[in-house]
Design a protein around this nucleic acid. Structure first.
Lengths: 113, 113
DNA sequence: TATTTATGTAACCTTATGGTTGCAAATATA
DNA sequence: TATATTTGCAACCATAAGGTTACATAAATA
């Protein structure tokens, strides 16, 4: 399964895991100890985080340390920040109103996301 | 189903829809016309976007105009930006290294995400 | 060596996702 | 009024998500 960072942070448990290991790497059991759900469930979340590049796991003895790769979050930041000027300029309502009026005349030209 | 904005932007089609209506509101059919999948599929995506507050739909005659509520994206921005200093300071590797060494001595204290 | 600890993973379950076709209802138009 | 357009939604399908228990294996320890 091909995963991307947006999917990676979609789940609240995964966001909490990231927060947990943001400052200090932790082995799988230590991460799991902070949740109600089973170790296996957490293991799966870590696997997903690994698949989308947000976490790297390194073996040390019998333990596996989960290390955050926060730089990947810049993908999310880049996407979101493209719209900041729009929401900060209170265009949220204005443009909608204008767009509504013009919707009948113009056609949307497809762009890549 | 309770939805949040992280789930809303998790799907690439939904991100494209948001981009499409970011500057100008569009009715459901106009949005759907820009995709390969069925109108119903797009309708469902719009519904999800509505449920998490990223889109508001307003009726005008027989048409429903989809209006972006981009301000909701600040929730995502706020979350991501908490980690910027970490990834920009190239702590991604350093802290992990240090954390790894200290992992045996200290215990992680749970925080809310 | 025997046992404990940390982890990976298979097998299974329930619900959510993302898609489809088909149809009904409301509004606009010929 | 008869027809076309726009939309909502039911019913269905396949697969992904998120969870569980049980078991196997590798490494550390008594």
């Amino acid at each position: 399964m091909r995963r991307d960072v947006f999917q990676g942070i979609a789940d609240p448990t995964r966001r909490e895991i990231l927060n947990m290991i943001a400052h200090k790497s932790l082995n799988v059991n230590s991460v799991a100890a902070n949740f109600e759900v089973s170790r296996t469930a957490i293991y799966k979340h870590i696997k997903i985080l690994t698949e989308c590049g947000l976490v790297v796991v390194r073996q040390q003895g019998r333990e596996r340390y989960c290390e955050a790769r926060l730089k990947k979050l810049s993908k999310v930041s880049d996407w979101v920040e493209r719209y900041r000027s729009l929401w900060e300029a209170k265009f949220d309502s204005l443009e909608a109103y204008l767009g509504k009026l013009e919707a009948k005349k113009k056609k949307y030209g497809k762009k890549k996301s």
